[in-house]
Design a protein around this nucleic acid. Structure first.
Length: 92
DNA sequence: CCCCTGACTAGAA
DNA sequence: TTTCTAGCCAGGG
């Protein structure tokens, strides 16, 4: 496991229900600003039990390969969506 | 070391 | 508003 993956998993593990973050934010908080794309790679490959549905693209877009499932999971946690986008993402 | 891929982004057309 | 382009980073061949 790389230090990068470790840091990212830690950040994701700290997320609470209803808390949504963007790929870029996760990368930054993990200490690798600019590695948003690499964060996506981890969600795509990692087998770890991580709350992947709480990670969205910039602007609240659902970029996962299963937007329907993601939307359902988010709404189940009380996150409101509008046109397939999350309204409030943790902003800078 | 080179080249390509992708659950990313910001900015220009 | 939608589409393209050019940077970005970690992985894999």
């Amino acid at each position: 496991m790389s230090a990068f993956e470790d840091a990212v998993l830690e950040v994701l593990g700290a997320l609470q229900p209803g808390e949504v973050v963007t790929y870029g934010e996760v990368a930054a908080e993990a200490g690798f600003p600019g590695a948003a794309r690499a964060v996506g790679s981890i969600l795509r490959t990692s087998d770890a039990n991580i709350p992947w549905w709480r990670v969205v693209g910039a602007g609240g877009q659902l970029r996962s390969p299963h937007p329907g499932r993601q939307k359902r999971l988010l709404e189940m946690e009380g996150v409101s969506l509008r046109n397939g986008k999350v309204l409030v993402v943790r902003n800078h």
